[in-house]
Computed example of a mutant assay.
Amino acid sequence: MEKVRFGIIGIGNMGSTHAQSLSGDIQGAELTAICDTNPQRLQWAKDNLPESVQLFDTPEAFWASRAMDTVLIATPHYDHPGMAIQAFENGYHVLVEKPAGVFTKAVREMNEAAAKSGKQFGIMYNQRTNPLYAKLRDLIQSGELGTVRRTNWIITNWYRSQSYYNSGGWRATWAGEGGGVLLNQDPHQLDLWQWTTGMMPKRVRAFCQFGKYRNIEVEDDVTAYVEYENGATGVFVTTVGESPGTNRYEISGDNGKIVIEDGKLTFWRLRVPEPQFNREYTGGFGQPECWTCDIPVPGGGGPQHKGILQNFTNALLHGEKLLAPGEEGIHGLTISNAMHLSAWTDNWVDLPLDEELFYEKLQERIRNSTFHKEQSAAAVLNVKGTH
C-alpha cells in the first residue's frame, strides 16, 4: 500500500472537517469517497472537494464500491457501532468519531467485530495528541507521582445556550443523541480521565440534573463520585449552564499533586513521599517539603484531529502504534453509562456495568423522547400519504 484511501460516511460538521484535512494535509493519505443520504451534503462535497472523490447516497453502494481502504465514520452517535460493523464485514479498516456509541452493549459488539476482522480500528480521541495530557500520562505511568490517591476534574466551560439546542429537534433528546453533556461535550475528558491515570472506577455514584438550566430532555448538569480498586477516589463535575466555566484537572498521589489548568501543567512535588514522611516524622505539626515545578510542555494543543488521522495512516503504512485504538472507546462510555444509570436508579453502580439494565432504562427514555414521538408521527403521516 503506497497510500491509504479514505472514505467518509457522514459529511456533517466533523465529516466535512476531516474531508478537508484528507484532501492534502495528511501525508500518505488521500480522500477517495464520500457517503451521505442528505443530497445537500453531497452537493457540498461536490462543490468543495476534489473532483476525483466519488460520491454515494447509500451505505450499500459505498461498501460495494471498493473505492477506499479505510472508512471514517462521522454519522450520528447511535449509528457508529452498526456502521463500523458493516465496514468490518465488508473488509475495511475503520476510524470512528467519538463517542464510540451511546450504550456499551452495542460498542462491545463493534469491538468483537473489529477483533474478528483483523483490520485496524481507531477512534477520534484527538485530545490524546495534546502534549499536556500526554505529559501527565507519562508522569503518572512512570511512577513520578507515585500511587494515585485522588482525581478531580471540574469541566464546566461547555456553555451552550437554549438557541443552540433549538437549532435541531434531535439535539439533546434521548432518541436523537442518547445523552447530554456527558455524551456530547465530555467524551474526551472521560477518556482522558482513565487514559492518563490508567485506572477505571470500580463503582460510581452520580447526580445528574435533566433540563436543569435548559429546556431539554437530557442531562445538563452532573456531579459524580467514583471509587477505584486501590482505594483512590475521584470527582467529576460538568455542566453546560455556567459562565464563566472552569477546566481544572487535579490528580493527587503519594509524591505530590499535579494540576492542568489554563494550558499549564504544574507539579507540586514532595521531596519525601507522604507515606515515608508520615512514617518518619515525629515533630507533631509539619508536612513534607514541597517544590512547585512548572513542567515544560511544547506549546499549543498538539495536532488534534489531524494528528489522529496521520497516526492512523502511519499505522497502516508503517506499522506505527495507534495512539487511540478503537477498542478503548468503550472505557469512557462505560463511565458515562454508569453515571446515567446511577442517576436513573438513584443508587451506586458497580463496574463491570450491567449493560442489559442500562439498555432497558435507555429504551424507556427513548420511547418517551420528544424526538422519537415526532419521528413516529411523521412516519404515520408519510404512510397515509399526507406528508
Rank of each mutant, 00 (worst) to 15 (best):
V297T: 04
P298M: 11
I295V: 15
L351R: 07
L270F: 14
L72W: 06
T129Q: 09
M339A: 11
Y213T: 08
V226T: 14
V272L: 12
T266H: 08
A172E: 12
V240C: 12
T129G: 05
T129I: 13
R203M: 13
L341K: 05
H387C: 13
A315T: 14
V259Y: 09
Y92K: 07
T32W: 06
I34Y: 04
D262K: 12
L145W: 08
I155V: 13
I123N: 01
R41F: 15
Q310A: 07
L31K: 07
V53D: 01
N311Y: 03
N157Y: 02
P275K: 00
R128P: 08
L145Q: 08
M110S: 07
M199N: 00
G332V: 02
D79Q: 13
V237Q: 15
L55A: 01
G284F: 03
L357M: 06
V349P: 00
P298F: 14
L362R: 03
V53N: 02
G300Q: 01
A206D: 05
N255E: 08
R149H: 15
K373F: 00
D69F: 03
G385D: 01
P201V: 09
Q310E: 13
Q375N: 14
A343H: 03
D220R: 02
I330E: 06
G118V: 08
E274P: 01
L22Y: 12
Q27Y: 02
I85C: 09
K3C: 11
G28Y: 01
P131G: 06
R248W: 00
G307Q: 01
P99M: 13
A115H: 10
P288G: 05
E355T: 11
